[in-house]
């Protein structure tokens, strides 16, 4: 186990190269390429219909890209899919918890699928639930939790197996403003304290922190990528909102 690990230790958390995807004849993604360095917070920014969820489905290997390669922590998604999946924690846009099962039962199911033993699983579950202030609700049925709490359980679940890449697809959808902010801050902290790389898809500009990296996706193409300062400079803008408008408008006019 240690050899392949050391080979990939310095690899980017996620590497996307020349990815194309079509639904039938309709192109959904074209020549998408970007890299997420280990331990960074990257915002995948784009309006609804830009292709964010499609891109997530490809990274999560729900289906294959028509063209191009994806690699998670150095593991190619086609050649070593199981190693790649093992390095990922995923929070989908739609809720995915079993409502009739308790928080603990939901998390234990996930731990089993990740091959974790009972002792290890229970320790990790307690640790993650404590981190998200959900420990006291361990035995409650998910149905009794509110939207914000359910989200926290889902993020805790995605972290159980200590992934190197955490994917979140518009995780704050349907949440009120304070809950939204709490979750955004929380995941930013994760990045700092645990060195986890995060890919956070959103269309909400206020979820971006100054230190984040950005991949701007519009109509299936990457319009800009990199640190915020670089993007502002490139677009000759003072705010992300302005840069966003300029970069997407320019392409649409062309």
């Amino acid at each position: 186990m240690s050899d392949p690990k050391s080979e990939t230790r310095n690899a980017a958390a996620l590497n996307v190269e020349g990815v194309r995807f079509h639904y039938g004849a309709k192109p959904a993604l074209q020549d998408v390429a970007f890299t997420i360095p280990a331990g960074t917070f990257t915002v995948l920014l784009g309006p609804n219909g830009a292709g964010k969820t499609t891109l997530f489905s490809l990274i999560a290997r729900l289906y294959h890209a028509t063209q191009g390669t994806l690699a998670v922590a150095g593991h190619d998604l086609r050649r070593a899919p199981l190693s790649a999946l093992a390095e990922m924690g995923i929070v989908f846009q739609q809720p995915t918890l079993d409502l009739d099962l308790s928080v603990l039962q939901n998390l234990r199911y996930h731990a089993a699928l990740r091959g974790m033993g009972k002792k290890d699983a229970l320790e990790r579950i307690d640790a993650e639930l404590r981190r998200f202030n959900m420990f006291e609700r361990k035995h409650e049925k998910v149905r009794t939790l509110n939207g914000g709490h359910r989200r926290r359980v889902e993020i805790a679940r995605a972290l159980l197996h200590q992934p190197r890449l955490l994917l979140l697809d518009e995780p704050t959808i349907g949440l009120d403003v304070p809950t939204r902010k709490a979750i955004v801050d929380h995941v930013h902290n994760l990045c700092k304290t645990d060195g986890i790389a995060v890919l956070w898809a959103t269309h909400l500009i206020d979820e971006i922190s100054p230190s984040d990296r950005i991949v701007l996706l519009d109509a299936g193409r990457v319009r800009a990528k990199g640190a915020i300062a670089d993007i502002l400079k490139e677009a000759d803008a003072t705010t992300i909102a302005e840069a966003f408008t300029k970069l997407t408008a320019k392409e649409n006019a062309a």
């Binding site: 999560a60 729900l62 999946l85 990922m88 995923i90 995915t96 699928l113 990740r114 091959g115």
Partner: peptide, 8 residues
């Protein structure tokens, strides 16, 4: 989907 993204 949760099931399908498991590393099995």
């Amino acid at each position: 989907r949760t099931l399908l993204v498991s590393p099995l």
